[in-house]
Design a protein around this nucleic acid. Structure first.
Lengths: 263, 263
DNA sequence: CGGCATTTTGACAATCGTCAATCAGTGTGG
DNA sequence: CCACACTGATTGACGATTGTCAAAATGCCG
């Protein structure tokens, strides 16, 4: 059931069969949520953590005047509210963008797992740090890039993230977002998003039709957006001839401290 | 030496004398860094973590065209690069804004501490989650607030953070930043920052002279900025008549899971 | 009193937002 | 199959916010 999560975690830290078995066993309820529904609301207290199995969800906040800002996209394999384990409550809402499959994991199960299985502990740490790096990148994007590069950067990030979970290929992926949702992500108006998309199309950088995005020349778009995927900690295991097992070990050894359980 | 850090951590999790003693013992080198110097550079690998003891520092990134975006302010008691413990490298730079005192803590010492002292583990987790919450708030600020509210929000955040470490009082604190640094934080131009500050002064919200900021009516500014400090997890221990010991316990018990070691 | 960094101003331009209308796609019921 | 309604995308005209450039004023330090 949790293949996507496990595959993601194994990008960071190798997990034993036991680790994986225990993770699988922690899942409680699986629920289907329709498109554009909130499934965790601000202030709500829950004894479960949530994980996206399928579909696009997002973390967002609504301001007094009704404006919305999306703070994160939650893709298959992403935790929605891992931090609630410690803080006990959310100061924002989480809703779906498309229909989603959401797994609940009881808080106590997660606490237990992280206490007893150091590799899981480490892996979840990595996942959190990647989220934090992504937030930093969004700050740069919102603060200092003009609308067109901002959009391009987002499209590049989604490309890389979706590639990692097998949902993008050859610069092509399904982008099930409305322009108003892109606007709420990039801090722009819908109208401007529309114009920017058309500009990117005119410039031959992308095709976006019927919710399918095609990036014509990925390198060109990345260069235009000044996109560097390092913050996502992608490591293309096979690309330099290593078999994936060895690649994984090398990755793990990089910080030269055995059994590094931090926090 | 680490009073500021310890006081901050104790806001989240009570620490035993032993915990505190071990933390103190972990410190290695203490260095003085002049104003506006980089002390950790992008890509640089170090076996030490860094903690601000004194002064203002920041995390930032420079774009191709020379623009800078500040992604975080690092105040006394804040870790600069806790996440390097896992990822082993930084994808951005860290520099001082004022002269700073910086403590180095060997990575291995930190790993050891977090493995052997669950309370320290928990406390550092909290600190990280607060940082993440702050980043989310900055995304909202940059994405959806106009320049004046954006500035007001930043000033409120700094007020609360500085109050927590005893560097602000009665809506008044030393703000040693140049307007160009505020601009690089808020994603604005220097000229616009200048005009916004004048507007806030004209509106009677603030006084800012010789690097000292006075907020005339804190509630009014917070309301204007739509600032809610929940993401900073401030809890005013004494304000409702509890003694601080009890307040701390209550805080700790809030998520009702004993010995919660997460991650 | 210089000399330099920083703040402040004004004039102007670019980016981006708002409003309102039109167009296109999709699904429904007759 | 077509009329209809609805949502989302697109367009044009216009306005507001914010940026750029260059100069002047102020503050700070030796």
């Amino acid at each position: 059931m949790l293949e996507t999560l496990i595959r993601k975690l194994e990008r960071f830290v190798p997990l034993s069969l036991e680790d994986k078995r225990m993770l699988e066993r922690a899942t409680a309820k699986v629920q289907q949520v329709g498109a554009r529904e909130d499934f965790i609301c601000e202030g709500e207290v829950s004894n479960d953590l949530h994980l996206v199995l399928n579909g696009f969800a997002c973390r967002y906040k609504i301001l007094r005047d009704g404006q919305r800002q999306i703070m994160a996209y939650l893709l298959p394999g992403d935790f929605c509210d891992l931090h609630v384990t410690m803080t006990g409550g959310l100061d924002h809402s989480i809703g779906t963008l498309t229909a989603c499959t959401i797994v609940s994991i009881p808080r106590y199960a997660m606490v237990d797992l992280t206490r007893r299985y150091p590799a899981i502990n480490r892996a979840l740490w990595w996942a959190t740090l990647v989220d934090e790096g992504t937030l930093r990148e969004w700050v740069v994007n919102l603060g200092r890039r003009p609308a067109d590069k901002r959009m391009a950067h987002l499209l590049c990030e989604l490309l890389v993230r979706l590639e990692m979970i097998g949902l993008a290929n050859g610069g092509r992926y399904e982008l099930p977002l409305k322009q108003s949702e892109l606007a709420d992500t990039l801090g722009l108006s819908v109208v401007h998003v529309n114009r920017i998309l058309q500009q990117l199309r005119r410039d031959g950088l992308i095709t976006l039709k019927r919710k399918v995005l095609s990036i014509h020349d990925v390198e060109r778009l990345k260069d235009f957006a000044e996109f560097s995927p390092s913050y996502l900690h992608v490591e293309q295991a096979e690309s330099d001839g290593m078999d994936s097992q060895r690649a994984m070990m090398r990755r793990y050894e990089a910080p030269p401290l055995e059994d590094m359980r931090v926090y």
